[in-house]
Design a protein around this nucleic acid. Sequence first.
DNA 1: GGATGTGAACGACTTCACAGCG
DNA 2: CGCTGTGAAGTCGTTCACATCC
Lengths: 225, 225
Amino acid sequence: MSKSAGDPAATGGTGGEPKLSRASVQRFSLYLRLLERWSQEGLTVVSSSQLGEALAVNDAQVRKDLAYLGSLGQPGIGYYTRELITALRHRLGVDRTWSAIVVGAGNLSRALLRYRGFAEQGFQFTALFDADPQKIGQVVEGLPVQSPAKIPEILAATKAELAVLAVPAESAQHVADMLVAAGIRGILNFAPVMLKLPAHVSLIAVDLAVQLEQLAFLVHLSQQE
Amino acid sequence: MSKSAGDPAATGGTGGEPKLSRASVQRFSLYLRLLERWSQEGLTVVSSSQLGEALAVNDAQVRKDLAYLGSLGQPGIGYYTRELITALRHRLGVDRTWSAIVVGAGNLSRALLRYRGFAEQGFQFTALFDADPQKIGQVVEGLPVQSPAKIPEILAATKAELAVLAVPAESAQHVADMLVAAGIRGILNFAPVMLKLPAHVSLIAVDLAVQLEQLAFLVHLSQQE
DNA sequence: GGATGTGAACGACTTCACAGCG
DNA sequence: CGCTGTGAAGTCGTTCACATCC
């Protein structure tokens, strides 16, 4: 469940690009994480079938995906993990630091702020907002809770490009509009609503209730036989 | 990002089924939520294009999806919301109560336990586990934290079929194995690892770090032009 | 008229299969 | 040899277009 903001009038070029399948992007993060773990465990060379098996992906698919990074593979050998990691980081854009703000100071935000994996990947949470006057001024995981009214100001100051939206469904669109107006570039939305955003703002939506429902449905299906 | 446990040797029948696209299932939950909201607002009839517009889905796609529920549509009119809702609930398996347990008593679990949308959809969280001795005995959102050693016992008693896994990556596979041994039917995994599960246990994986990375990548891409 | 249901065209993604290289 | 890179084939999902029905 995730949808990027539009991509109209693309395919402008006369074609000939190596083709970046929209779906392979979904797997890049998984390759990267796995490679980082394996690399730390001392693995220096890896084959497409090893990667494929670990991630439940066809090995040809893995090669197609990785080919998009350039011809890094060594026939008869495999891929050098270090090289792959560097190339993946670059392609994914995580070879730099991303600054992100969090709106909504509930348990979900707390969980996100606490998770150390983000910092390792170059993500920094630089500000936390909540509309609840009771919460403003409190410090959560090292960040003071601030009024959403300050979003424009803070966003201008921190140059944060990403925002995590973990507010009630009712206020999600309103807050999103504020973020857009303040110049945000991408929103990770946890509120159970379909946000309407201009095309230049990217969107990933994660709806936890939907996920649980999907799981129930899978079980439901498997029980019907 | 989600993958059901295998589905080998399927396609046994001689074909002829109305065809349930794996992807349309992803949308069923969204239709359902939207319809429930609109229905409460007094809407009694809805057209495929209305639904499509609200969810950014082609109207023909919506009709194809809904056709799988039977021929509920009224040519020239649309669909009766009540009928659609009932049919969707039945098809999704949420026209009954699902009992679920939660393993890992961190902030993410807290957020899930607190979210009221689950109860409305018939999901009940009946037990909470954590390996941290410090936490055992505490009461979180109304549920006492129990030792994972009690999983088999409690699972047998509560007949819970679903489990939410919100534990550190290191222990995720171990806990998953325990859950499987105890007879769980489906797992919603938040730990950043690829779980290996037997085919009869369904799996939905939500990796928050991957989602943020995907968002960064989308922004990264949009900035390259 | 207005909306459904659906075959057919289209496009995207995946898998196969194999040439080619170290 | 083993493993990559990739055209070709196959599968799946989406969109189009239109007959059909209220």
